[in-house]
Nucleic acid binder design. Sequence first.
DNA 1: GTCTATATGCGGATAGAC
DNA 2: GTCTATCCGCATATAGAC
Lengths: 206, 206
Amino acid sequence: MRTRDRILEASVKLFNAEGVARVSTNRIATEVDISPGNLHYHFKTKEEIVEWLFRHLEGRIDPLLDDDAPMRALDDWWLHVHLSLEAIYDYRFVFYDLEYLLREYPRVATRIRRLTLHSLQSVRRQCGELARSGVMRASDEDLEMLALHIVFTGTCWLTFANVLPDPTRSQPPSGLAAYQVLSLLGPYLADEPAHYLHYLRSKYVR
Amino acid sequence: MRTRDRILEASVKLFNAEGVARVSTNRIATEVDISPGNLHYHFKTKEEIVEWLFRHLEGRIDPLLDDDAPMRALDDWWLHVHLSLEAIYDYRFVFYDLEYLLREYPRVATRIRRLTLHSLQSVRRQCGELARSGVMRASDEDLEMLALHIVFTGTCWLTFANVLPDPTRSQPPSGLAAYQVLSLLGPYLADEPAHYLHYLRSKYVR
DNA sequence: GTCTATATGCGGATAGAC
DNA sequence: GTCTATCCGCATATAGAC
């Protein structure tokens, strides 16, 4: 089962660098140094490759979403966000080419939708906990909207960062995205966590 | 110059519905009921079609960004946002396939980047005005971050909406996006504009 | 499991006649 | 301006030998 893994490894590398659409299965085969025929022995279709890569991503994010260790300080949550966004960054091709995948690969599409809903639920719950422990003050409506914005930012920020000119893009990318997510909480935070946020800002902006 | 316009019209329709990558120039020619050769008489390359469509989009957004009529109430700003997002919706293929266009069509890419920066500048200025007229209270740092989030939301929301299940998607799409943008101001608004925001919310959510 | 060879189809784009 | 015919290249996928 070694070749199979090398195919996946090469695929994610190429997809991230050049986009799913531009990378042909032949390219992948060349990169792995096997024949196209051999590649199709391991993965019948290109979609199958993408699907398995997406499963890997799920394997990294789902546990973070399901972890219901107590969430009492902003810092606890920050860690989860950071790890999630690192995973997203490692599989960024998914988020660069979201629409393409949704249209072209139906089986991947359903998995994407499932993961997004799962994220929404968990983030809502986690923010609720933060509110209950006094880290921030927000109404239920606020929390609902916050969760949506947060998942939205996690999902699309990398794409947007690519539109911006280099100065913003050349930051450590997952870190900046994480700060961007966290800053959404800014207006709702109590004094002490607000200072922590400010400290993080100094680390990631400019 | 009639055929030329029919080509552009058919292109934007097909691009929006199926994505730039899936729509071949032959498809467009068929739709317009001309020959492929004829299409290439009017537009040497596919990129040229995309570029001209993007110019049309610019023609609708740039004036809104440059309009420096006084911006004293939240409602003034709301109108600008709404019109911009309507334009974005009419050319939504650009935003669905952002990464694809950035990679595949360099001339379009520079235009996209230019428009994004232009939006950032203008939104920053407009939010500054709103703050100065007392519609909201926000520090310079807040304003900077707000502008970024607002342009980000305008740019990527439609894509994200496609990931969510239908209930959220089946809303009047540009209206929902506009509310989503506006809601970012929520925490910073004074009492009266906050009520106006709440009224808008009732129009666009659920 | 891995290779070579190949089928099949489509996409963008051009040539040249009308 | 518009057409027909065609080139060229690539991508996905398969067949069958080793």
